Simulated scan of single mutants.
Amino acid sequence: MIEAIIFDFGDVFLNLDKEATVRELKKLGLKEWTPELEQLNYQYEIGKIDELEFMCGIQKHIAKCDILAIREAWNAILLDFPLYRLEFLQLLSGKFRLFLLSNTDQTHIDKFEHKVGQSFARDFYGCFEKVYFSYDIHLRKPDENAFKFVINNHNLIPKKTLFIDDKKENINAAKKLGFVTWNLQVGKEDVTQLFEKNLL
């Protein structure tokens, strides 16, 4: 019997274009997305560096490009958040303990909130008992400590907790800890099909 559900954010609720950021950065002059930039992104997602350090780190790889243009390119990944998904979540919130666990950064969350508006964002966050962003908790999936952080803070029982994510590595980490899981296939499945999955 499922008592709690932990959701990922991007491509579960908020649609993403995962190639858009690098595509837009290349238009600004970036030659390639390097392991150094990947590490920089990781540091930003776990809150080890701030936005200015992150943007300046990218700027080193793009000659004569201002930080505002880089931020705009960085946010190109974010698409729309369909209202029907929020409505579905609101229905669920009366039936289960809900949590959000997202690998993300301050820039993306600021942009999301600006894009959908404070009222929509407040309604979304209000569906959850607690919202966890990687940059706030300094932990990132698939690190099992990210999951344990949520488990321990809320006394969750993994075998009575469903974890929904679009990334296989995150699902695998959750499975090892005993969670019930749904590896949502982006473009083929929608979070609103949850009841059809016979997981609850």
Rank of each mutant, 00 (worst) to 15 (best):
S119N: 12
G94W: 00
H108N: 10
D105H: 09
L86Q: 06
T107I: 15
D66P: 11
G57R: 04
P35G: 06
E72D: 13
I77V: 15
S102Y: 01
F128E: 01
F99N: 02
G94C: 01
Q90P: 03
I67Y: 05
F112V: 13
L40F: 08
D105R: 01
Q90W: 07
F96H: 12
K111Q: 13
I58M: 08
Q39N: 13
P82W: 05
K64I: 07
A76Q: 14
L98V: 07
P82T: 08
Q106C: 12
F99A: 03
Q59Y: 05
F128R: 05
L92A: 07
T104H: 00
C56L: 14
P35E: 01
L78P: 03
K95D: 06
E38W: 03
L101S: 00
K111E: 13
G47V: 00
E51K: 11
W74V: 09
M55D: 05
P35C: 00
H114V: 06
I46H: 00
K95L: 04
L40S: 01
L89V: 02
N103Q: 05
L52H: 08
H108G: 05
E87G: 02
K48N: 11
K64N: 15
L100Q: 03
L37P: 07
F81A: 07
A73H: 09
W74F: 15
Q59N: 14
E72N: 13
D110R: 15
K95M: 05
L52W: 03
M55W: 06
C56Q: 12
A121I: 02
G57Q: 02
F81K: 04
R122C: 06
A73Q: 12
L101Q: 02
K95T: 03
E87W: 00
Y42R: 02
Q118M: 08
Y42F: 08
A63I: 13
F96S: 01
L86F: 09
G57I: 04
S119Q: 14
E38H: 06
R71N: 11
L91Q: 15
R85E: 05
I67W: 08
G94R: 02
I109P: 05
L92H: 01
C127A: 10
I49T: 07
F112M: 13
R71Q: 15
R122S: 13
I70C: 09
F120N: 02
V116M: 11
K95G: 04
Q106S: 14
R71M: 11
Q43S: 10
I58A: 07
A69H: 10
I77Q: 04
R122W: 10
C127K: 03
L98D: 06
T34C: 08
L91C: 08
L89A: 04
T34E: 02
A76Y: 03
Q39K: 13
Q118I: 12
S102V: 01
L78F: 09
I67D: 06
S93H: 10
K60P: 04
G94Y: 03
R97T: 10
Y44F: 15
D110F: 13
A69S: 15
L86C: 09
E51I: 05
L98E: 10
E36R: 12
I49H: 03
G47H: 00
G126C: 01
R97Q: 14
A76R: 12
R122P: 00
E51L: 09
F124D: 00
A76N: 08
L52G: 02
T104I: 07
N75C: 15
L52M: 09
G117N: 04
E72Q: 14
Y125E: 11
I58G: 09
R85P: 03
Q59A: 15
